[in-house]
Nucleic acid binder design. Structure first.
Lengths: 106, 106
DNA sequence: AATAAACATCGAAATATTTAAATATATGAA
DNA sequence: TTCATATATTTAAATATTTCGATGTTTATT
């Protein structure tokens, strides 16, 4: 029986396929959704659904639609809090996306 | 008359407005256009229109449409060469876009 | 239990995007 | 000049996206 040795796998960022890049790009291709993401800079770390409703000049169903695009692209992570919803920015996915864009330059 | 002193303005990347971010994101939100950009990695520095036609499984007008999206977003710079067209990747704009995405994380 | 608040879903209208066929334009070659 | 090649534009069809009003669901409060 051969001995097994530990193997260090060096994967800082999982490779994104083009469908995933497409999905994230599409999620970013709307000024309302860009504004949502930028609002995270003004808050500490999370953003409440109600805050997004105040931020955008849109009806509640439209805001819900835009948040869903961002969540479906994994850019936002939703967390239920009673009857409220809060969202966290998924920096891991954002970093993976940025890494893909950087790799275009080589 | 007061003396004037030289002023160093440190602007590595011009600030992009949200409409511009939207436009670039939309240009990136299609697997055909992502494939075009990735093809630059395999080439030295420029890509010919005819090469893009070979790369994609689309008719010539469709390829022309996709190239136009990338050019309109300033991601590609077109150069006429006789009756051919070649495209250069605009790394400056790509870097500005990446800088905007990075700034979301603060 | 009844009500209100927060958010999601459905349905429909308006608009935008993708694609290809047909056609136009510009350039190089004969 | 005429013809062929490379690319762009126009038009139309199919599909996707954005938005809102109406309604549904879940949860907290009374």
């Amino acid at each position: 029986m051969p001995r097994l040795y530990p193997l260090l796998i060096w994967s800082r960022a999982r490779k994104m396929d083009n469908k995933k890049i497409e999905k994230i790009s599409r999620a970013l291709s709307d000024t309302n959704r860009i504004a949502i993401l930028q609002e995270f800079k003004k808050k500490k770390d999370c953003l409440y659904c109600a805050e997004v409703n105040d931020l955008l000049d849109l009806t509640q169903p439209s805001v819900s639609h835009h948040l869903k695009q961002l969540v479906d692209a994994d850019l936002l992570v939703p967390q239920k809090e009673g009857r409220n919803f809060k969202y966290l920015l998924n920096e891991t996915v954002l970093n993976e996306y940025i890494a893909c864009l950087n790799s275009l330059k080589d």
